[in-house]
Design a protein around this nucleic acid. Structure first.
Length: 568
DNA sequence: GCCGTTTTCGGCCCGACTGTTTTCAGTCG
């Protein structure tokens, strides 16, 4: 699939056009097309073949033709044209805070700045600050931007961002001047990675509150501090923004700062069509304030049901809300158990007993213990003798519990030849079996996973794409074929809740849902504290529009066992 | 460049903050 490759080209065209000070909306159009391709589950080449490219939102005639051109010839004239007089290293600088297209163009034209190193030199030599509209402070801020970029230009993992935000929110809540403190932005939407952390609060004395905020003990640097808005960089190297609004604007501001940008653009268009104006202070008819204290009243006034933050990505949620057809998203209270975890029997720190004790604290009815199978030597996979020992321990422990049980599971390797790591007579003894790829990431993965799904005892495919958010692309796999096979065989696909995996991801889950595939959530915990990461899987499922009945963890075990394909 | 309950042209996001300037340009979200 070349979706990502083409998306990257469009992003670069957008950067180049921005640098050249082209029409801002044209830049946006390319960025939108890039985003649509990045999130596309289908193969862009297939859509091109069947003439369906222009059915995608944000893809019109001109962009469809460029995609077709690139697929046919491996080249895109537009891309070559707009980038030919720009050094390849230059556009990277646009990602640095306080460097925008104007500053960059000026530094390039006057001082031949082409790289980050050039920019540092231009600042050190004092030449940058001599340019028009530049100055001491401006140069200093660019230098800070470069430092931040070099330290951590990667997005923050959701679990880290959530922790940082929770600490800042708790700090602000201690202060009597502040009320209604809440995280907004991509964190409130539970996006899998977070750029910076947005926090919203209400209070009378904005300036004072911003002052308190900038004295947060973990502040490394204060990037801005005004009457209603402040920005700090905390020790993790992440930027935290705080906005202060009036009580009566709280809902409007929460809506506005939760985003996504694309969702908000569409919402404002709906407002405009009704002769209204929506901004972070409220919904207005002319100068008259008509709504804004809560999000609900804003959506209601626009003729929409309130939309869960996780859905606000402009992936059809506004259309669904207009028709009153929003999904009833699965919630934590629907969940009865965790369906993947490891113990000391393979490669984990936690004993079975410790995992069970923690699971009961979490009010689960069951957990599925899924240690590795024998060929996973790197993970101390279990040969049959150790497996039988584990079963006896599970049986012994289960006698002690009431209203809780440990299910006998396994994360079995799908081998390089597509075979499963245990024979069927062992497999059928498990309560549930997860089949996963842990070896041969580039070798016939689609065929091997498909073959595994033909096995009546393989109930779940674990982390189906194998991606690691921080470090690995994932297997070479045709997910469309895998989903078709999953739907045909009644195999469930996993949403692995491990924060670096979140696999399947939101857009793939939404696609799976549309195909009628059931989803299982597992933390893949390798230690007791990691059982608390379940929420990241749950939230990813919510971003994939999943309802409780579509997530198998919501069924009591008596019902769940009957959903297995071997019981059908 | 896209899009259409304002429909084939004209609108599409605009307000806060900073730093440069001396009334506003650039950047960010």
């Amino acid at each position: 699939m070349r979706n990502k490759e083409i998306a990257e080209l469009f992003n670069q065209i957008a950067d180049a056009l921005e640098f050249k000070n082209e029409n801002f909306f044209k830049v946006l159009a390319y960025r939108k097309a890039a985003r649509v391709l990045e999130e596309l589950v289908d193969d862009v080449a297939e859509l091109d073949r069947t003439g369906k490219l222009m059915e995608l939102p944000g893809i019109g005639r001109a962009i469809a033709e460029k995609i077709a051109e690139y697929l046919a010839t491996g080249r895109m004239k537009k891309y070559e044209e707009v980038t030919k007089d720009i050094p390849a290293s230059l556009l990277e600088l646009l990602n640095i805070q306080n460097i925008g297209p104007k500053t960059l163009a000026l530094a390039y034209k006057e001082l031949s700045v082409k790289t980050i190193a050039d920019m540092k030199k231009a600042i050190a030599s004092g030449r940058l600050k001599e340019l028009p509209m530049m100055g001491e402070k401006k140069a200093e801020n660019i230098l800070k931007g470069i430092e931040l970029y070099e330290r951590s230009h990667e997005r923050l993992a959701i679990n880290i961002a959530e922790e940082v935000a929770a600490r800042v929110v708790a700090y602000l809540k201690q202060n009597a001047l502040v009320s209604n403190v809440s995280a907004a932005g991509s964190l409130r939407r539970w996006k899998e990675t977070i750029g910076d952390i947005d926090i919203l609060a209400t209070g009378k004395d904005g300036k004072k509150i911003i002052g308190i905020f900038t004295r947060y003990p973990e502040t490394r640097e204060v990037a801005a501090a005004g009457d209603t808005k402040g920005s700090i960089v905390v020790d993790e190297g992440v930027q935290v923004d705080l906005r202060i609004v009036d009580e009566k604007s709280y809902g409007a501001a929460l809506q506005y700062f939760t985003g996504s940008k694309e969702h908000n653009v569409k919402l404002r268009a709906i407002a405009a069509a009704k002769g209204l104006k929506l901004n972070e202070y409220g919904l207005y008819r002319g100068k008259k304030f008509v709504a804004g204290k809560t999000e609900e009243e804003i959506y209601r006034y626009l003729g929409l049901a309130w939309i869960e933050p996780e859905l606000r990505e402009d992936r059809g949620e506004i259309e669904a809300a207009l028709k009153n057809k929003l999904p009833r998203l699965v919630e934590m209270k629907d969940i009865r158990g965790d369906l993947q975890m490891h113990s000391t029997y393979s490669d984990s720190e936690a004993t079975i007993e410790e995992l069970a004790a923690e699971a009961q604290k979490l009010d689960y009815e069951y957990i599925l213990l899924t240690d590795h199978s024998q060929s996973a030597r790197y993970a101390h996979g279990m040969e049959p003798a150790r497996l039988y020992r584990q079963w006896r321990e599970i049986e012994r422990l289960n006698k002690k519990f009431e209203g809780f049980q440990i299910l006998k599971g396994i994360e079995v390797d799908i081998l390089k030849d597509g075979k499963i790591d245990y024979p069927d007579q062992i497999l059928k003894e498990f309560d549930l079996v997860i089949g996963s790829i842990h070896q041969g990431f580039t070798k016939n993965v689609t065929e091997r996973v498909s073959a595994a799904m033909e096995n009546p005892y393989v109930d779940i495919i674990g982390h189906p794409t194998g991606r690691l958010i921080s470090s690995r692309e994932g297997y070479v796999i045709d997910l469309n074929k895998v989903m078709e096979k999953a739907a045909a065989t009644g195999t469930w696909l996993e949403c692995n809740a491990y924060p670096d995996r979140l696999d399947l991801n939101d857009v793939n889950l939404k696609k799976a849902r549309e195909m009628g595939i059931k989803i299982s959530i597992g933390t893949d915990a390798h230690g007791v504290p990691e059982l608390r990461w379940f929420k990241f899987g749950l939230e990813t499922c919510r971003r994939g529009w999943l309802e409780a009945r579509e997530v198998v963890n919501t069924y009591p075990w008596e019902k769940l066992r009957l959903l297995r394909k071997s019981a059908q």
